[in-house]
Nucleic acid binder design. Structure first.
Lengths: 326, 326
DNA sequence: CTGTTAGCGCTTTCAG
DNA sequence: CTGAAAGCGCTAACAG
C-alpha cells in the first residue's frame, strides 16, 4: 500500500498519484478519477513520515510544560491545541517537571526535525544550555519569559499583577500581607515577588512574608500557609500565586480556626472557573489562559513561515476579580 | 550536517557513523573516537524523521482524550507520559471534544506511521468508523471501554463503584439519592448509571433522579444541581460523576440555603487531591489515576512489541473515601 | 572491523 | 497533462 502500488494499479506514474493526493490542478479529470478509484481500491494510506522527510516539515509543534496537572497549564495547552489544529498542526506534549535533563531530551525532537517549532511554558529560557539547543529554531515562550532576553514571548505583566494584588488587599485594610510564591527559578515568580515587594514599599507596609510552594498542588499551598500561620507574627492576608495553592491555604486557615476573610483574606491567581464556586468564593487575578495559548501559536506559526520575523514580547491583560475571600 | 558530512569529515563511511551513533559494538575504538570527534566538530544532529522512516518505528504514542482540562484526564495523561518516557517513547496529545471528525483526523497519524500506537480515553470504541480506522494497530482503551468488544482496556469497575456510592449514601440515611452523570455516550457513564439504578432497586429506594452534565466543568455541575433542586421533589443526596461537578453542585446547594451534609449529602468521583480541602471536605470515589495511565502504556508497548499478544481487560481497584460532605 | 549499496515512501524538478 | 528519475537522511544487509 505504497504510492507505487496505487500507481501501478491505476496505470499511471507515482508522480501523478502524488499530484492528485496533494490536489494539484494539472491533472486530467479522467486520470484523476482513475487514481482516486485505485486509492480507494487499495485502501491506500499515505505514509506521513515519508512525506515529512521529503518536504522537511512535520506540521507538529512541541509544547513543553512543567506539569500538565497544573490547571493553568492544561487550559493554556487547550488554547494551543485549538489554534494549532485550526492551522493543520498537531502537538507533542512534554511534562518536564522542570528537570533540565528531560527538557533537553525533548528538545532533540526539535533538532531532529520531528517538530517544526516549540512553545515553552517552562523556565527553559533561564538556562543557557537549553537556549543553545533551541538555537534559532522557531520558539515562543508562553506565560514565562524575560523580555530582556532573546526569544519571543507572550505573557501577562506579572509584576503589575502582583502589585494590583497587594493594593487590593491593602485597600481592604490588611497590613500583614503574605505571599505564597512558586518555584523562584521561574521568571514569573521573580516578577510577582518583585511586584509584591515594591507595592508593599509604596504602601508603607513594613511587614512581609514569602513562602515558596514546591509544586502547584493544594498540599503545597497548605504546607506554605502552615509555615506562615505558625510564625511569630502571622499574616492577616495572603496572596497565592495560583488558585490551586489558595485552596490549600484556605483549608489550612480553617484548620487553624480562622474565618475567611475576617481573620485572613485570601487572593488567588489564574482565575480558574471553580474559584468562583469555593466557599467562600475566591478573589483572584484572572489570566487570559486560552488566549495565551492561541496567541503563542499564532506567533510561532508566523515564525515558522518566516524565520526572519522580528522577535516580539506580547503582554496580555490580566484582571483582578474581587470576591468574598478578600 | 547529515550523516554523510560527518562520515566524510571523519574519513569513514556513513555505515560506520551510523554504527557509532547507535552504539554498535563492532567498531574499533580508534575509529569510534574519530567519528565522535567529527560528530562534535560538525555539531551533527541526527534527523529523527529519516531514522523513523527507515526503521518504521517512531517511538511516539497518540493519546486521545476528550478534554485535557478535566483534571482526571490530565492526571491519567501524566501517568501515561511518565511510563512512556521511561521506555523512550514520546506522546502526542489530542483533545477530541468527543467530536468524531477530530478524532478521525488524529487517527490518520496512526495509519500514517507517525505514531506506533494509540491510547484512547474517549468513547471511540463505541463508534464503528473509528474502530475501523484503528484497524488492528496497537490500541488500548483507558478508563473507558466495553469488555464485550474487541480492543484491550484498563478501567475500574464503574458499575460496582456507583453501587458503592449509593450504598454509602443510603447507609447515611439518605432516601432520595440523585445522580449527576456525564455524557451518556460514554460507556463509563452508562455503567455508572446502571450501577446507580441497580443499587437503588436493591435497597428498595423508589426515588431516583439523574441529570446529565454536558461537560466536566463546575458550571455544568451547578446547572445540573439546579435542575435537581428546583424539581418538585428535591434530593437529599447527590452522587456526581466527577469531583469537578461536585464543586458546582455544592455551590448550588449553598446558594439554595442548604447545608452540606445536613440538607444535602454530596459524593464526588475521581479523588482529586483538592477534594479533601474543600469546605466541607468532599467524600469521593478514588480512582487510581496515575496507575490507569502507566498500566495502559505497559499493555500498549507489549502490544507493539508483539502484535499478536492477546487482548486483555484489566480492572483496577477504586475505593470510597468518606469525608464530611456525606 | 569497515565500506558499498539498496532502499524506507514520498515529492518535485525536468523533460516530453 | 504525464512520466522518469533524483533524492530527503538514515539503517541494514552483504561483502570484503
Amino acid at each position: 500500500m505504497s504510492i507505487e502500488k496505487v500507481a501501478r494499479f491505476a496505470g499511471v506514474s507515482t508522480a501523478t498519484v502524488s499530484r492528485v493526493l496533494n490536489g494539484y490542478k494539472g491533472v486530467r479529470p479522467a486520470t484523476r478519477e482513475r487514481v482516486l478509484a485505485a486509492i480507494a481500491a487499495c485502501q491506500y494510506q499515505p505514509n506521513l513520515l515519508a512525506r515529512q522527510l521529503r518536504t522537511s516539515q512535520s506540521r507538529m509543534l512541541l509544547v513543553l510544560v512543567s506539569n500538565i496537572i497544573n490547571p493553568f497549564c492544561s487550559r493554556v495547552v487547550r488554547g494551543i491545541e485549538a489554534e494549532a489544529e485550526a492551522h493543520g498542526y498537531h502537538i507533542l506534549l512534554c511534562n518536564s517537571d522542570s528537570q533540565t535533563q528531560r527538557e533537553s531530551a525533548y528538545l532533540t525532537l526539535l533538532s531532529g526535525k520531528v517538530v517544526d517549532g516549540v512553545i515553552t511554558m517552562d523556565a527553559a529560557s533561564n538556562l543557557p544550555e537549553l537556549r543553545k539547543m533551541i538555537g534559532d529554531s522557531p520558539w515562543i515562550q508562553c506565560a514565562e519569559g524575560n523580555p530582556d532576553m532573546t526569544g519571543s514571548s507572550v505573557t501577562i505583566d506579572n509584576q503589575q499583577a502582583a502589585r494590583k494584588a497587594v493594593q487590593h488587599l491593602a485597600q481592604r485594610g490588611r497590613r500583614r500581607i503574605a505571599m505564597i510564591n512558586g518555584d523562584p527559578r521561574y521568571f514569573y515568580a521573580q516578577q510577582r515577588e518583585s511586584g509584591y515587594r515594591s507595592a508593599l514599599a509604596e504602601l508603607d507596609l513594613p511587614w512581609s512574608g514569602v513562602e515558596y510552594a514546591n509544586e502547584v498542588e493544594c498540599e503545597a499551598g497548605f504546607a506554605a500557609m502552615k509555615r506562615l500561620l505558625e510564625a511569630e507574627e502571622p499574616p492577616d492576608a495572603v496572596f497565592t500565586v495560583s488558585d490551586v495553592l489558595a485552596v490549600g491555604a484556605m483549608h489550612c486557615a480553617r484548620q487553624h480556626q480562622l474565618t475567611i476573610p475576617q481573620d485572613l483574606a485570601v487572593l488567588g491567581f489564574d482565575g480558574l472557573p471553580w474559584s468562583a464556586m469555593l466557599s467562600p468564593p475566591l478573589s483572584t487575578l484572572e489570566q487570559p489562559m486560552h488566549q495565551l495559548g492561541t496567541r503563542s501559536v499564532q506567533l510561532l506559526l508566523q515564525r515558522i513561515k518566516n524565520p526572519l520575523a522580528p522577535q516580539v514580547h506580547e503582554r496580555l491583560p490580566c484582571q483582578l476579580v474581587a470576591r468574598a475571600s478578600s
